[in-house]
Design a binder for these strands. Structure first.
Length: 574
RNA sequence: GCGCCUGUAGCUCAACUGGAUAGAGCGCUUGGCUACGGACCAGGAGGUUCUGGGUUCAAAUCCUAGCAGGCGCGCCA
């Protein structure tokens, strides 16, 4: 329980015991009542909207009610020492000294888990799932990091998380990919020219794969594509997945499970999934309407199996079969999600790129249909990444063909910077990623700024010749925090709230934003010492005030927890 | 034509999901360091929250009608 929940419970209890005296008949489970962090200028610890909510329901003027509540709270809740009524009826509350210390105490007790929202659910997060036809590009990185960090966050809260990669190793694209490798082998080994065909993959990495395969299979003859196909497919996929895994590893990302589309086909999972959906009458034979607004010369009207996804909010029903009767990509995906459902996850998460926006409704529909709406699924779409260098757009990559590869990125920028920056925006907005900015060791670079705060804290600890979290005595010491320290402590109290809302909404960008703000407060405090010697932390190798030691340790705890979730390193020295 | 996302300071973005005087960074501008690490800090200017209606104590946030940009919209994967 975080302090906001804790004190809100106190408030609710008091209200319930006094509701008759107050003429409060309509309480309604306190819906909408909350404790928040007051805006900076108020210098209070908590802010409560209860007078406005209950006032409205019971037709009492909010300010009038607030005045009455103020008296009662101060009398009944010993943790509150001061209350001010502000604005339309907000109650700003200052905590008593002992309440403050109790709250701080629990932070030190929880330490590595401070901020976590206790939860015990099972999650499957599918992310990256880049086609194994080539290395990862920058766009994939964003989703990859997002998925990885989401997993960290959910685990931090105590959930069981499986990180999964769906390998699309089946279908037309793979055929062209293997064909491209084949022609590169022809080129390298037999000196035949690489043909100019539209569907082939031009990227130079194909050459690398080809020469590796040649090297590892010296006695093998590659002279008949159809005959060589299965072998080449296996080898090529192995190689390109190695490339992808290497990129992921360099980004600090691991998956627990790689699920192959070919396996779905081989095990005939589609038939099983369709059977289930047919029984539920969500799949039927029928005709689809041609898409509107498009010329549809190629449209072939024919009877086929259709998933009635409109029943679950999709814009159109979806084809499960192609013209030749074979399964569509979507059909395989339905089967894949049936498999996920059968593995008994309570929650599924799909992290997708912007080019898959149109796909989310049908996959949600499929999961709802397959699980009778029991399994929750959330599809998170990450918008595009735009690359900049020196402020101007930056394009092309030699190795990957038309995209900038993850490797290109990693060659220029460290993993830590990439991870932090990719998360420093809401996934709903396009992200400008500037190579140069990210490499700077200045305030312009938020990663550096946060790391620097931690390094400075450690520098203090070093000069005191102690370790972090040492020499703090909360039981016997009396503390007298100054206003800057109070401000920082308030920010520290906010941390569980950040985790709470982030865990609910999956808006991961709040974490880097928060860490940056916390670091700002610290740097600001530190610099006070330059203006005024009274504010210096250390004098004659000793800490001046135990309050400072306490506060910087609190900051260290939160920075550690936050950066651990982000998977970004936090060095003691820089 | 349809769906999803976006529209907030000159630029890039926040805003506790309906709360208080809409906040940060960059840029502009004025100051502060021989330091516990200046790789920083403090101050100032800068806003009709795309537009019009609506909902209520309260709207950037919700509803509605538009406008603008991005991404999609097969029986590709």
């Amino acid at each position: 329980m975080n302090i906001f929940e804790y004190h809100l419970t106190e408030i609710k209890e008091v209200i319930l015991s006094k509701k008759n005296n107050l003429n409060l008949n309509e309480i309604n489970d306190f819906k909408g009542v909350s404790l928040e962090v007051p805006p900076d200028q108020f210098n209070y610890d908590l802010s409560c909207n209860i007078a406005m909510i209950l006032g409205k329901k019971n037709k009492i003027r909010p300010k009038e009610l607030a005045l009455k509540l103020k008296v009662i709270f101060l009398e009944k809740i010993s943790n509150f020492s001061l209350i001010e009524i502000a604005g339309p009826g907000f109650m700003n509350i200052k905590l008593s000294n002992s309440a403050l210390l109790n709250n701080i105490n629990s932070i030190f007790k929880n330490k590595k888990f401070y901020g976590s929202v206790k939860d015990n659910k099972t999650y499957n997060i599918e992310f990256v799932s880049a086609n194994p036809t080539g290395p990862m590009h920058v766009g994939h990185c964003r989703g990859a990091i997002y998925g990885d960090v989401l997993a960290n966050l959910l685990k931090f809260n105590g959930n069981k998380v499986t990180k999964e990669y769906y390998v699309n190793d089946y279908g037309e694209q793979i055929k062209f990919f293997v064909e491209s490798v084949y022609f590169r082998i022809q080129e390298i080994k037999y000196n035949k020219k690489f043909p100019k065909q539209e569907n082939l993959y031009p990227g130079l990495y194909i050459k690398d794969i080809a020469s590796k395969i040649i090297h590892e299979n010296k006695d093998f003859t590659f002279n008949d594509f159809t005959k060589n196909f299965e072998f080449l497919k296996k080898e090529s996929l192995k190689k390109s997945m190695e490339l992808i895994k290497k990129d992921l590893k360099n980004l600090g990302i691991t998956h627990d499970n790689f699920f192959s589309e070919t396996e779905i086909v081989n095990k005939d999972l589609v038939t099983k999934a369709i059977k289930i959906l047919k029984e539920k009458r969500f799949v039927e034979e029928g005709f689809l309407q041609p898409p509107k607004g498009e010329t549809n010369d190629n449209w072939k009207k024919m009877k086929r199996l259709i998933f009635k996804s409109t029943l679950f909010g999709d814009d159109a029903d979806r084809a499960l079969q192609k013209n030749d009767g074979s399964w569509t990509y979507f059909a395989n995906d339905v089967a894949y999600h049936m498999n996920k459902v059968s593995r008994n996850y309570e929650n599924l998460v799909n992290v997708l790129g912007a080019d898959h926006t149109g796909y989310t409704k049908r996959i949600k529909a499929a999961v709802s249909a397959l699980s009778d709406k029991k399994v929750k699924i959330k599809c998170v779409v990450c918008q595009l990444v735009k690359l900049f260098k020196n402020g101007s757009p930056f394009k092309m990559s030699k190795r990957a063909g038309e995209f900038i590869s993850a490797q290109d990125l990693l060659n220029e920028v460290e993993k830590d910077q990439i991870r932090f920056m990719m998360l420093n925006r809401s996934n709903d907005v396009e992200l400008d990623f500037d190579f140069d900015k990210v490499k700077q060791k200045t305030k312009d670079n938020p990663v550096f700024y946060v790391q620097y705060a931690y390094a400075r804290i450690n520098s203090i600890i070093r000069s005191l010749n102690i370790n972090l979290f040492e020499k703090i005595n909360l039981k016997e010491d009396k503390f007298n925090f100054n206003s800057i320290e109070e401000k920082i402590i308030r920010k520290i109290f906010e941390w569980p709230k950040i985790i709470e809302s982030t865990s609910k909404k999956f808006d991961l960008h709040k974490i880097p934003f928060y860490l940056y703000e916390l670091s700002t407060l610290f740097h600001s405090y530190w610099s006070k010492g330059n203006e005024n010697k009274d504010y210096k932390f250390i004098e004659n190798d000793k800490i001046k005030r135990k309050e400072i030691l306490l506060v910087i340790n609190l900051i260290a705890i939160v920075l550690q927890n936050g950066m651990r979730i982000l998977g970004v390193s936090l060095p003691d020295k820089m």
